[in-house]
């Protein structure tokens, strides 16, 4: 059961402080726990830090890990930058899309998985690679990828 966004914000503020410099850490907490940053949380962060709602929204919109749209319980970030592309990230992408019946950028209807493509994730020596939530998966093959997806709650 997800916690209330305001509760997450007040816990994060207690932990990281209400200074402006705590904003990314606070947003990271919300984003990790809820998979996205809902409007209510933005308002709470802006109030705690003492800046406008627009300011926090602007910050969120800059970073690719943050989202203000609801996302799945699991987020797959498949690298499509050059070394991964050369080693077959295109085929992996097709595999995931077929397996989940969604396109990159979308979330499965049951809210289980969001699929995103991402810039280089620093695993080029083990390409193709992807992150599932906080865990890296490397040297992907279509079979291995299907197995990983099947294991997601």
């Amino acid at each position: 059961m997800n916690r209330n966004p305001r509760e997450i914000v007040s816990d994060a503020v207690a932990r990281f402080g209400s200074g402006r410099e705590a904003v990314i850490q606070i947003l990271t907490e919300i984003n990790r726990e809820l998979s996205y940053i809902p409007e209510e949380a933005i308002v709470a962060v802006a109030g705690a830090i003492g800046v406008s709602n627009a300011e926090i929204y602007s910050v969120i919109s800059f970073y690719s890990f943050f989202s203000t749209e609801p996302r799945g319980r699991n987020i797959i970030r498949l690298c499509t930058t050059i070394s991964c592309q050369m080693n077959g990230s295109g085929e992996i992408l097709k595999t995931i899309e077929a397996e989940l019946g969604i396109k990159a950028g979308d979330t499965t209807p049951d809210g289980r998985i969001t699929l995103e493509t991402t810039s280089c994730i620093g695993l080029c020596d083990q390409a193709p690679a992807m992150m599932v939530n906080d865990t890296p998966h490397t040297r992907l093959t279509p079979d291995e990828t299907r197995r990983i997806i099947a294991g997601l709650e």
Binding site: V51, S52, A54, E55, Y57, S58, S61, F62, S64
Partner: peptide, 10 residues
């Protein structure tokens, strides 16, 4: 000191 308009996106 109103700050309702901001750059959004990247």
């Amino acid at each position: 000191s109103v700050a309702v308009i901001k750059p959004v996106g990247r």
